[in-house]
Simulated assay, not measured.
Amino acid sequence: MSDSSVLKVICADLPAPPLFWREGETRFGYESDVARAIAAKLGLECEFVYQQWGDFYPSLNENKGDILLCGQGISEYRKTLANFTAPYGVFDEAVMVLTDSPYKSMEDLKGKRIGAIANSMNMTLVETFDGVIAVPFVGTTDDIMGEMVAALRAGEVDAFVDDDVALVPLANEPDLAIVYTAPTQNKWGIAISKERPETLEKVDAALKALKEDGTLKALWQQWMPNLQYPFEHDTVSPA
């Protein structure tokens, strides 16, 4: 690693439970604990390096962090920017609207403006919807999810797409609702600079070990008990 005693993890400083959020100096959530568990497998301390969403890959390739672990669906576009480990998560995608909007189905959203993070798997899904206007969000603040929610509430978009694991908690807000869930089963991975193949090998091996010894499953069930764990076949049963 860039520092032999620390694994530096690039991520966003925004609230996205159950994946990640921060209270004071402590970071909580599934992704946060996965990062710590990988660092522990490597015999390293874990340090979070906060970056704006739009700066993730430049920061990674400038070696501001060793890995990028923050909601990165493994898309063909992103694979041109970095290498990826095997997945640590698999999620469907959902479409969020205002509760009092007239949009009750995807048919109602034809011709409407639907937002998503630029160059993401979510934007790829938006581009498959019939007759909609895709609105990309590049992440100009520390809170790209907050940007999309604010745009929806301000009427700048009619809906937006993100992974269901992030939107289900948001749907507890009285003015927000999920109108559609797409069973896309997007694979999320850890991004690592193409200039650091040795880091990819080490982190992939650590992640494989977490799957085999049941640690990843325990973290999944701790933070996302209502979602089915997707890597049962990777767990090694005790002899």
Rank of each mutant, 00 (worst) to 15 (best):
G139H: 01
P197S: 04
D162E: 13
I144C: 01
F20N: 07
E93Q: 13
E93T: 10
T85I: 14
L69T: 06
L167A: 03
V168T: 14
I190W: 04
I74Y: 03
K208R: 12
S59M: 11
D204Y: 06
A35P: 04
A150S: 13
A239E: 15
Y88M: 00
D3Q: 14
P183T: 00
E156K: 15
W53P: 07
D3C: 07
R196Y: 06
T26C: 01
P102Y: 07
A16N: 11
N119F: 11
D13A: 05
D13R: 10
A94P: 09
D143A: 12
L170Y: 00
K110H: 08
L42T: 10
E232N: 13
D33Q: 14
N226H: 02
K64V: 05
A218M: 13
N63D: 12
A12Y: 05
P230D: 02
A116Y: 02
K110C: 11
Q52R: 15
L200M: 03
S193W: 12
L207E: 03
D100T: 08
V6G: 08
N119R: 14
Y30I: 09
M121S: 10
D164V: 06
F56C: 02
Y229H: 02
G146Q: 02
D108E: 04
L19A: 04
I114L: 10
V34W: 01
V132A: 06
L7V: 08
E232A: 15
F91A: 01
Y103R: 00
G139P: 01
N172G: 07
F28S: 09
M123N: 07
A12Q: 12
V161T: 07
N186T: 15
F56I: 01
S5N: 14
P15H: 15
L60M: 09
E195V: 02
D66Y: 06
T124P: 01
G89L: 13
D66Q: 11
R78T: 01
G29S: 12
P230M: 06
L19T: 05
E25V: 07
A151I: 11
E76P: 05
D13P: 04
K112R: 13
D175G: 06
G71V: 08
V97K: 02
